[in-house]
Simulated assay, not measured.
Amino acid sequence: MSNYARVTGVSEVELVTEEKPTTLPPGAVEVAITYCGVCATDTHNYTSGGKVPPAVFGHEWTGTIARVAEDVTTVEVGQRVVACVGPACGACAMCVGGHSEHCDLAFAEANGVDPHAPVHGGFAESVVVQARRVLPLPDQVDDVAAALVEPTAVTFHAVRRTAQELGALVVVQGAGPIGLLAAQHARHAGAGHVLVIEPNPERRAAAEALGFTDVREPGEATQEHLLALTDGRGADVLYECTGAAALLQPSAELVRRGGTLSLLGFPMTDSTVSYGDWQVRELRVVSSLAYLHEDFVGAVRSIADGSVAVAGLHTGTIGLSELAATMDELDSGRTSHAKVLVDPRR
Protein backbone atom coordinates (compact mmCIF):
# COMPACT_ATOMS: atom_id res chain seq x y z
CA MET A 1 0.00 0.00 0.00
CA SER A 2 1.09 3.59 -0.64
CA ASN A 3 -0.21 7.02 0.39
CA TYR A 4 -0.44 10.14 -1.73
CA ALA A 5 -2.01 13.60 -1.49
CA ARG A 6 -4.47 15.03 -4.00
CA VAL A 7 -6.51 18.23 -4.29
CA THR A 8 -10.23 17.57 -3.87
CA GLY A 9 -11.61 21.12 -3.79
CA VAL A 10 -10.72 24.76 -3.25
CA SER A 11 -8.01 24.75 -0.55
CA GLU A 12 -8.73 21.10 0.20
CA VAL A 13 -6.28 18.20 0.22
CA GLU A 14 -6.95 14.59 1.11
CA LEU A 15 -4.61 11.68 1.71
CA VAL A 16 -5.40 8.62 -0.36
CA THR A 17 -4.19 5.07 0.26
CA GLU A 18 -3.78 3.01 -2.88
CA GLU A 19 -2.65 -0.52 -3.55
CA LYS A 20 0.57 -0.74 -5.50
CA PRO A 21 0.34 -2.46 -8.89
CA THR A 22 1.70 -6.01 -8.84
CA THR A 23 3.47 -5.45 -12.16
CA LEU A 24 4.77 -2.30 -13.83
CA PRO A 25 3.81 -1.20 -17.35
CA PRO A 26 6.48 -1.60 -20.05
CA GLY A 27 9.20 1.03 -19.77
CA ALA A 28 8.12 2.08 -16.26
CA VAL A 29 9.86 2.41 -12.91
CA GLU A 30 8.56 2.85 -9.39
CA VAL A 31 10.31 5.52 -7.36
CA ALA A 32 10.19 5.63 -3.57
CA ILE A 33 9.96 9.36 -2.85
CA THR A 34 12.58 10.88 -0.55
CA TYR A 35 11.54 14.53 -0.81
CA CYS A 36 9.17 16.60 -2.91
CA GLY A 37 9.44 20.38 -3.03
CA VAL A 38 6.42 22.68 -2.78
CA CYS A 39 6.28 25.41 -5.41
CA ALA A 40 3.93 28.22 -6.45
CA THR A 41 2.26 25.97 -9.04
CA ASP A 42 1.31 23.55 -6.27
CA THR A 43 -0.09 26.38 -4.15
CA HIS A 44 -2.09 27.72 -7.10
CA ASN A 45 -3.47 24.25 -7.76
CA TYR A 46 -4.49 23.96 -4.11
CA THR A 47 -6.21 27.36 -3.93
CA SER A 48 -7.93 26.93 -7.31
CA GLY A 49 -9.33 23.50 -6.49
CA GLY A 50 -7.22 21.49 -8.92
CA LYS A 51 -6.76 23.52 -12.09
CA VAL A 52 -3.53 21.78 -13.14
CA PRO A 53 -3.14 18.10 -14.10
CA PRO A 54 -2.91 15.72 -11.11
CA ALA A 55 0.62 14.62 -12.03
CA VAL A 56 1.85 18.22 -11.61
CA PHE A 57 0.74 18.49 -7.99
CA GLY A 58 4.12 17.62 -6.54
CA HIS A 59 6.52 17.74 -9.49
CA GLU A 60 9.79 18.61 -7.71
CA TRP A 61 10.55 15.12 -6.45
CA THR A 62 13.58 12.97 -5.84
CA GLY A 63 13.82 9.39 -4.64
CA THR A 64 15.22 5.90 -5.07
CA ILE A 65 14.32 3.33 -7.71
CA ALA A 66 12.22 0.67 -5.95
CA ARG A 67 11.19 -1.46 -8.95
CA VAL A 68 11.77 -1.53 -12.70
CA ALA A 69 9.78 -3.12 -15.52
CA GLU A 70 11.41 -6.11 -17.19
CA ASP A 71 12.38 -4.11 -20.29
CA VAL A 72 14.07 -1.21 -18.42
CA THR A 73 17.86 -1.17 -18.73
CA THR A 74 18.72 2.51 -18.14
CA VAL A 75 18.34 2.50 -14.33
CA GLU A 76 18.37 -0.14 -11.63
CA VAL A 77 16.87 -0.74 -8.22
CA GLY A 78 18.58 1.30 -5.50
CA GLN A 79 19.70 4.18 -7.72
CA ARG A 80 18.97 7.71 -6.53
CA VAL A 81 17.12 9.70 -9.18
CA VAL A 82 15.37 12.99 -9.75
CA ALA A 83 12.24 13.68 -11.78
CA CYS A 84 12.89 15.12 -15.23
CA VAL A 85 11.47 15.14 -18.75
CA GLY A 86 12.76 12.71 -21.32
CA PRO A 87 15.00 13.52 -24.28
CA ALA A 88 13.41 14.76 -27.49
CA CYS A 89 11.44 11.85 -28.94
CA GLY A 90 12.47 12.34 -32.59
CA ALA A 91 9.03 11.30 -33.82
CA CYS A 92 6.55 14.09 -32.99
CA ALA A 93 5.65 16.86 -35.44
CA MET A 94 8.06 19.33 -33.81
CA CYS A 95 10.98 16.90 -33.85
CA VAL A 96 10.33 15.80 -37.43
CA GLY A 97 10.12 19.46 -38.43
CA GLY A 98 13.59 20.10 -37.00
CA HIS A 99 12.43 21.74 -33.78
CA SER A 100 13.47 19.13 -31.24
CA GLU A 101 14.05 21.85 -28.64
CA HIS A 102 10.24 22.07 -28.54
CA CYS A 103 9.51 18.33 -28.62
CA ASP A 104 5.79 17.72 -28.13
CA LEU A 105 6.34 14.69 -25.89
CA ALA A 106 8.82 16.45 -23.59
CA PHE A 107 6.45 19.43 -23.36
CA ALA A 108 3.56 17.13 -22.49
CA GLU A 109 5.68 15.41 -19.83
CA ALA A 110 6.60 18.76 -18.31
CA ASN A 111 2.93 19.63 -18.04
CA GLY A 112 1.69 16.25 -16.81
CA VAL A 113 -0.44 15.43 -19.86
CA ASP A 114 1.64 12.82 -21.66
CA PRO A 115 0.07 9.40 -22.35
CA HIS A 116 1.95 7.82 -19.45
CA ALA A 117 1.43 10.60 -16.89
CA PRO A 118 0.84 9.18 -13.40
CA VAL A 119 -2.48 9.76 -11.64
CA HIS A 120 -0.73 11.71 -8.90
CA GLY A 121 2.49 13.60 -8.35
CA GLY A 122 5.33 13.34 -5.87
CA PHE A 123 3.41 14.27 -2.73
CA ALA A 124 3.38 10.55 -2.20
CA GLU A 125 5.28 7.62 -0.76
CA SER A 126 5.96 6.37 -4.28
CA VAL A 127 5.17 7.17 -7.90
CA VAL A 128 5.27 5.15 -11.13
CA VAL A 129 6.64 6.90 -14.21
CA GLN A 130 8.34 6.00 -17.45
CA ALA A 131 12.08 5.38 -17.09
CA ARG A 132 12.78 8.25 -19.51
CA ARG A 133 11.34 10.55 -16.83
CA VAL A 134 14.10 9.94 -14.27
CA LEU A 135 17.71 11.10 -14.17
CA PRO A 136 20.33 9.31 -12.04
CA LEU A 137 22.14 11.51 -9.51
CA PRO A 138 25.86 11.72 -8.76
CA ASP A 139 27.03 11.29 -5.17
CA GLN A 140 27.98 14.99 -4.96
CA VAL A 141 24.28 15.95 -5.00
CA ASP A 142 22.67 15.06 -1.67
CA ASP A 143 18.97 14.40 -1.18
CA VAL A 144 18.03 17.96 -0.18
CA ALA A 145 19.89 19.41 -3.15
CA ALA A 146 18.28 16.79 -5.40
CA ALA A 147 14.83 18.03 -4.37
CA LEU A 148 15.83 21.44 -5.73
CA VAL A 149 17.03 20.21 -9.12
CA GLU A 150 13.67 20.88 -10.80
CA PRO A 151 13.52 24.65 -10.08
CA THR A 152 17.23 24.80 -10.90
CA ALA A 153 16.40 23.29 -14.30
CA VAL A 154 13.61 25.86 -14.81
CA THR A 155 16.06 28.72 -14.35
CA PHE A 156 18.89 26.99 -16.23
CA HIS A 157 16.50 26.72 -19.20
CA ALA A 158 15.51 30.39 -18.95
CA VAL A 159 19.06 31.74 -18.80
CA ARG A 160 20.13 29.43 -21.62
CA ARG A 161 17.23 30.62 -23.81
CA THR A 162 18.04 34.24 -23.03
CA ALA A 163 21.52 33.91 -24.58
CA GLN A 164 22.91 36.49 -22.16
CA GLU A 165 26.15 38.02 -23.44
CA LEU A 166 29.40 37.86 -21.48
CA GLY A 167 29.85 40.90 -19.28
CA ALA A 168 26.18 41.87 -19.41
CA LEU A 169 24.71 44.08 -16.73
CA VAL A 170 21.86 41.97 -15.40
CA VAL A 171 18.87 42.85 -13.24
CA VAL A 172 16.96 40.09 -11.45
CA GLN A 173 13.47 41.17 -10.41
CA GLY A 174 12.44 39.11 -7.38
CA ALA A 175 14.56 37.08 -4.95
CA GLY A 176 12.32 34.12 -4.27
CA PRO A 177 13.67 30.64 -5.10
CA ILE A 178 13.35 31.21 -8.86
CA GLY A 179 14.99 34.63 -8.70
CA LEU A 180 17.87 33.42 -6.53
CA LEU A 181 18.52 30.50 -8.87
CA ALA A 182 18.25 32.68 -12.00
CA ALA A 183 20.69 35.16 -10.47
CA GLN A 184 23.22 32.39 -9.84
CA HIS A 185 22.87 31.03 -13.37
CA ALA A 186 23.28 34.56 -14.76
CA ARG A 187 26.44 35.00 -12.72
CA HIS A 188 27.71 31.58 -13.83
CA ALA A 189 26.95 32.55 -17.46
CA GLY A 190 29.35 35.48 -17.23
CA ALA A 191 27.32 38.48 -16.13
CA GLY A 192 29.51 41.50 -15.49
CA HIS A 193 27.24 42.84 -12.78
CA VAL A 194 24.08 41.49 -11.14
CA LEU A 195 21.56 43.78 -9.46
CA VAL A 196 18.88 41.97 -7.44
CA ILE A 197 15.64 43.84 -6.69
CA GLU A 198 13.45 42.50 -3.88
CA PRO A 199 11.08 44.18 -1.37
CA ASN A 200 11.29 41.44 1.30
CA PRO A 201 14.26 41.99 3.69
CA GLU A 202 14.66 38.27 4.43
CA ARG A 203 14.90 37.48 0.73
CA ARG A 204 17.37 40.32 0.24
CA ALA A 205 19.47 38.78 3.00
CA ALA A 206 19.26 35.40 1.23
CA ALA A 207 20.60 36.99 -1.95
CA GLU A 208 23.46 38.59 -0.05
CA ALA A 209 24.28 35.25 1.59
CA LEU A 210 24.74 33.84 -1.92
CA GLY A 211 27.40 36.46 -2.61
CA PHE A 212 25.35 39.12 -4.41
CA THR A 213 26.58 42.54 -3.30
CA ASP A 214 24.12 44.79 -5.14
CA VAL A 215 20.77 43.90 -3.60
CA ARG A 216 18.16 46.65 -3.29
CA GLU A 217 14.53 47.44 -2.58
CA PRO A 218 12.36 48.43 -5.55
CA GLY A 219 11.74 52.12 -5.99
CA GLU A 220 13.00 55.34 -7.49
CA ALA A 221 16.36 55.18 -5.70
CA THR A 222 17.11 51.78 -7.26
CA GLN A 223 16.12 53.03 -10.71
CA GLU A 224 18.51 55.97 -10.31
CA HIS A 225 21.22 53.56 -9.13
CA LEU A 226 20.76 51.42 -12.25
CA LEU A 227 20.94 54.45 -14.53
CA ALA A 228 24.11 55.61 -12.78
CA LEU A 229 25.69 52.17 -13.27
CA THR A 230 24.92 52.23 -16.99
CA ASP A 231 25.45 55.90 -17.90
CA GLY A 232 21.71 56.24 -18.31
CA ARG A 233 21.20 53.20 -20.59
CA GLY A 234 19.44 50.64 -18.39
CA ALA A 235 20.00 46.90 -17.98
CA ASP A 236 21.32 44.72 -20.77
CA VAL A 237 19.15 41.86 -19.47
CA LEU A 238 16.33 41.80 -16.94
CA TYR A 239 15.02 38.49 -15.62
CA GLU A 240 11.43 38.98 -14.41
CA CYS A 241 10.98 36.29 -11.75
CA THR A 242 8.00 37.51 -9.72
CA GLY A 243 5.12 36.66 -12.04
CA ALA A 244 3.37 39.85 -10.86
CA ALA A 245 1.37 41.11 -13.83
CA ALA A 246 1.61 44.73 -12.67
CA LEU A 247 5.42 44.60 -12.80
CA LEU A 248 5.73 43.65 -16.47
CA GLN A 249 5.78 47.16 -17.93
CA PRO A 250 7.84 48.71 -15.09
CA SER A 251 10.36 45.88 -15.51
CA ALA A 252 10.55 46.51 -19.26
CA GLU A 253 11.30 50.17 -18.56
CA LEU A 254 14.46 49.19 -16.68
CA VAL A 255 15.91 47.59 -19.84
CA ARG A 256 18.07 49.59 -22.23
CA ARG A 257 17.12 50.17 -25.84
CA GLY A 258 17.87 46.93 -27.68
CA GLY A 259 18.20 45.01 -24.42
CA THR A 260 16.49 41.80 -23.35
CA LEU A 261 13.48 41.25 -21.12
CA SER A 262 13.43 37.61 -20.02
CA LEU A 263 10.15 36.33 -18.57
CA LEU A 264 10.30 33.54 -15.96
CA GLY A 265 7.53 34.37 -13.51
CA PHE A 266 4.09 33.18 -14.59
CA PRO A 267 1.30 35.75 -14.05
CA MET A 268 -2.14 34.41 -13.20
CA THR A 269 -3.88 37.49 -14.63
CA ASP A 270 -3.58 39.54 -17.81
CA SER A 271 -0.84 42.15 -18.06
CA THR A 272 -1.07 45.65 -19.49
CA VAL A 273 2.02 46.80 -21.36
CA SER A 274 2.96 49.59 -23.73
CA TYR A 275 3.54 47.81 -27.02
CA GLY A 276 4.62 51.11 -28.59
CA ASP A 277 7.32 51.56 -25.92
CA TRP A 278 8.63 48.06 -26.53
CA GLN A 279 8.66 48.57 -30.29
CA VAL A 280 10.30 52.00 -30.22
CA ARG A 281 13.07 50.69 -27.97
CA GLU A 282 13.39 47.45 -29.93
CA LEU A 283 13.20 45.30 -26.83
CA ARG A 284 14.08 41.67 -27.26
CA VAL A 285 11.53 39.68 -25.25
CA VAL A 286 12.30 36.05 -24.37
CA SER A 287 9.82 33.83 -22.57
CA SER A 288 10.46 30.45 -21.04
CA LEU A 289 8.34 27.70 -19.53
CA ALA A 290 9.54 24.51 -17.89
CA TYR A 291 12.61 22.83 -19.41
CA LEU A 292 14.22 20.22 -21.62
CA HIS A 293 16.07 17.05 -20.67
CA GLU A 294 19.42 18.76 -21.21
CA ASP A 295 18.44 21.49 -18.74
CA PHE A 296 18.19 18.84 -16.02
CA VAL A 297 21.60 17.48 -16.96
CA GLY A 298 23.04 21.01 -16.77
CA ALA A 299 21.24 21.77 -13.51
CA VAL A 300 22.59 18.64 -11.83
CA ARG A 301 26.12 19.44 -13.00
CA SER A 302 25.89 23.07 -11.81
CA ILE A 303 24.83 21.89 -8.34
CA ALA A 304 27.42 19.11 -8.22
CA ASP A 305 30.34 21.41 -9.08
CA GLY A 306 29.18 24.21 -6.76
CA SER A 307 28.40 26.75 -9.47
CA VAL A 308 24.88 27.01 -8.07
CA ALA A 309 24.17 26.74 -4.33
CA VAL A 310 20.75 25.42 -3.38
CA ALA A 311 21.02 24.23 0.23
CA GLY A 312 20.26 27.69 1.62
CA LEU A 313 16.91 27.77 -0.17
CA HIS A 314 15.60 24.87 1.95
CA THR A 315 13.77 26.41 4.90
CA GLY A 316 11.57 23.62 6.21
CA THR A 317 10.56 19.96 5.98
CA ILE A 318 7.04 18.63 6.63
CA GLY A 319 5.08 15.39 6.38
CA LEU A 320 2.14 14.68 4.08
CA SER A 321 -0.33 15.41 6.87
CA GLU A 322 1.03 18.97 7.17
CA LEU A 323 0.67 19.78 3.48
CA ALA A 324 -2.64 21.67 3.63
CA ALA A 325 -1.56 23.89 6.52
CA THR A 326 1.70 24.66 4.74
CA MET A 327 -0.15 25.55 1.54
CA ASP A 328 -2.32 27.97 3.53
CA GLU A 329 0.76 29.60 5.01
CA LEU A 330 2.54 29.90 1.67
CA ASP A 331 -0.57 31.41 0.08
CA SER A 332 -0.99 33.96 2.88
CA GLY A 333 1.95 36.07 1.74
CA ARG A 334 3.14 36.21 5.34
CA THR A 335 5.58 33.31 5.31
CA SER A 336 9.31 33.38 5.82
CA HIS A 337 9.75 30.12 3.88
CA ALA A 338 11.67 29.91 0.62
CA LYS A 339 11.48 26.21 -0.23
CA VAL A 340 9.56 23.67 1.84
CA LEU A 341 10.19 19.97 1.25
CA VAL A 342 7.68 17.20 1.90
CA ASP A 343 9.11 14.01 3.41
CA PRO A 344 6.41 11.33 2.97
CA ARG A 345 8.13 9.10 5.53
CA ARG A 346 7.39 11.53 8.40
Rank of each mutant, 00 (worst) to 15 (best):
G9F: 00
L15V: 10
L226H: 10
T326P: 08
T152A: 13
V141K: 10
H116E: 14
T22I: 01
R204Y: 03
V144H: 13
P138H: 07
S332M: 09
G319S: 15
A207Y: 01
V215F: 02
S302K: 05
T47D: 02
E30V: 02
A209L: 03
E294L: 05
E202G: 14
L15P: 04
G176L: 05
T43P: 00
V7I: 14
R216S: 05
I33E: 10
P25Q: 11
F212Y: 02
V273N: 07
S274I: 03
S332K: 07
A93L: 03
T269L: 08
R301C: 02
Q173H: 08
E150S: 09
L283R: 09
A290P: 00
G176A: 07
E70C: 04
S2R: 14
V52R: 11
D295N: 07
E19T: 14
E60C: 05
S126E: 14
S288W: 01
R346F: 06
F57E: 07
A28I: 00
A40Y: 05
L330D: 13
S274R: 11
P138M: 06
T22L: 08
A182T: 14
D343C: 09
V340Y: 04
L105V: 14
R161N: 06
T326H: 05
S251F: 08
A183S: 13
V129S: 03
T64Q: 08
R67E: 08
L105G: 01
P201L: 01
N3I: 14
E253W: 04
V38T: 04
L247D: 05
D114C: 11
A246G: 08
H157S: 06
V308L: 13
T17R: 12
S11W: 00
A221R: 12
L313A: 02
S126P: 12
A290C: 12
V56Q: 12
T242Q: 05
E224I: 06
S288P: 00
M1G: 15
G37M: 06
E224Q: 14
R204Q: 15
V128Q: 04
M94Q: 13
H314N: 14
L166C: 05
F266L: 13
R257K: 15
I33F: 12
G97W: 04
Q279C: 08
S336M: 08
Y46V: 02
V280A: 11
E329S: 08
